[in-house]
Nucleic acid binder design. Structure first.
Lengths: 138, 138
DNA sequence: GTAACTGCAAAATATTTGCATCCTT
DNA sequence: AAGGATGCAAATATTTTGCAGTTAC
């Protein structure tokens, strides 16, 4: 049984509203990551720009989504895995950005190697962003 | 012998101008990475906002600096190593972002492990961003 | 002297905030 | 009914573009 947008909102103690459901469903349907602009385009004026900003921020706060660092400063968001709790992410997965189609996908099955940091450094989170050509654009 | 801002500009066939020298020197003096805002603050109105944008873009194009992906979408820039040529970066180094002091540093001595990508994916660049507490903030 | 770079002004974008209204619980 | 969420308007902030004046080579 797949988890529904409804479930996710309940788990995070958020009111179940139409825009949250729609945005969450978009994330659930999309295999890759989404930028603010993608969401806006997808719903073309269906609801307010500002609502998208606020909804994304709320989801971030609750740990429902996480942001993916990108080199071109477009902000990408993706659903968190089950082991993410509010404010404390365990997402150690690899993100792949295709230079051809521009899509960002989570490579869930690729394991992020642990790196040995210099003395005195403590790591709480590791992101690995690989860019290149994805299998669809090959 | 240390390389100078002057040398770098000559190597990239760029005119040697005051603002380019100053910005490059700032990079050379700074061990960590710089965001657009940092540069602006550092020179407090010394020269135009727009000049900074254009200078950074030029440096990016020439492969003098590279941008570092960050999770909070502030765009960070850092000097490229010698083995970077225009448009083709070999920077496989790890960046560390301190959650305490906010500084971004390049961990040049930490080797980025190669990851095995799923069939069909080709990688041209790998970024690894580790966040946590740096040795100075410990 | 010519091409390239800079500063200023302004346009285009992107993000944040305040407040009245509407929806969820 | 009460608290929270949304939409609209507007304030801020960020980035881009055009053009005239200046500087590097």
């Amino acid at each position: 049984m797949n988890i529904t947008a409804d479930d996710i909102l309940k788990q995070s103690h958020l009111s179940i509203t139409s825009s949250r459901i729609k945005i969450l469903n978009l994330f659930l349907e999309t295999k890759g990551a989404l930028a603010h602009g993608d969401i806006e385009k997808k719903f073309g004026g269906k609801f307010d720009r500002v609502t998208i900003y606020r909804t994304l921020q709320t989801f971030l706060d609750k740990g429902i989504i996480h942001s993916i660092p990108t080199a071109d400063n477009s902000v990408q968001y993706a659903l968190c895995k089950d082991d993410c709790t509010a404010g404390h992410h365990h997402d150690q997965h690899v993100h792949f950005i295709c230079n051809q189609c521009g899509n960002t996908v989570c490579l869930d099955d690729v394991h992020v190697p642990t790196v040995k940091l210099p003395i005195g450094f403590t790591s709480t989170q590791v992101h690995m962003i690989v860019s290149g050509i994805c299998k669809d654009c090959k």
